[in-house]
Design a protein around this nucleic acid. Structure first.
Lengths: 161, 161
DNA sequence: TTTTTACTCATACTTTCGGGTGATTTTACA
DNA sequence: TGTAAAATCACCCGAAAGTATGAGTAAAAA
């Protein structure tokens, strides 16, 4: 349907509309900037910067991290706490068993670095509420109550370095 | 050296030069495009597109490639609770430098196990407020803002296992 | 002996966390 | 193409964490 089409191409449409609006604004701005010397160059530079930023934003937003987790075989369990010197080996088995999703693991990792939920949200380009949801699920899946416990347990299970 | 500097900032330099050239070309193009109606809009659109592309390229170029996790087969030996031969060596120097007192270090250690302030207070037979005071001092001395950061930093400094 | 330091505790206040609920949107897959 | 899981976001509310300030006490250092 048309509606479906519109929804599916939301990003593109928003992008197009933004571009149109920007063109209009720029056109309007030109009328009063034109009186200055080099206004044109400044104008172009501003546009270039804005759209470079937009491009970066687009790339970050639309790029999907192609992370795939495949399980072929599970052999044995047990964790070993080798005093790692720079060599961290993710315990795939424990990861699967924990049931953590990609995103949840990502949040957990950032959590372990000591970031607040707000900081994590900013880093991942999502809202604070989203991070709260993720972290809640992490706690649930790791069967802990606090982020400090989650980090401690995750390290013990070699889910994070 | 200068050469090194140039190489290291290759991307930025190329970007800057491209921008300059583009400005120049655009300026030149303007002279013959200006005669058409809406030439300006076309002009801007072209710039917008080019720089959007540039932004995308930049983002893709500067962003670390996405990771792909694959599990094929795990050969894990059973390590039976050899569970640390306790090879933790406290970094005395770092401890002195940090200026942490005995009690503060104690609180920090319990913190690292994921205990809440209330739990720590119960464990040490002191009031919650006392623990809050201690933890505040710990954060201050470690120059961090949150307990998760404190734990992370303390581990890095080998103040705790 | 005086001073300093560590430890203790309190009150008041702000911020962050975490639980609970519900909803929409993507994505993957059968 | 419909369904299930994952990801996103919102709002409320209570608990926990953290800040600021002040203060009393005991032990160590001067």
């Amino acid at each position: 349907m048309l509606l479906n089409f519109l929804i599916r191409n939301k990003h593109v449409i928003i992008y197009g509309i933004s571009l149109a609006i920007l063109l209009f604004v720029m056109r309007w701005l030109q009328l009063r900037l034109i009186i200055f010397n080099h206004a044109f160059e400044i104008y172009i530079a501003v546009i270039a910067l804005i759209f470079t930023g937009l491009g970066i934003w687009l790339a970050l937003k639309l790029t999907k991290p192609k992370v795939e987790i495949k399980v072929v075989e599970q052999v044995v369990e047990r964790v070993h706490q080798v005093e790692n010197t720079s060599e961290f080996k993710l315990n795939e088995t424990a990861l699967i068993e924990s049931g953590l999703s990609k995103r949840e693991l990502e949040v957990l990792e950032l959590m372990a670095t000591g970031l607040s939920n707000q900081e994590i949200a900013l880093k991942l380009f999502v809202s604070l509420n989203t991070i709260k949801t993720h972290s809640s699920k992490v706690f649930e899946k790791l069967d802990v109550k606090r982020r400090t416990q989650a980090v401690e347990k995750a390290k013990r299970l070699s889910l994070i370095p």
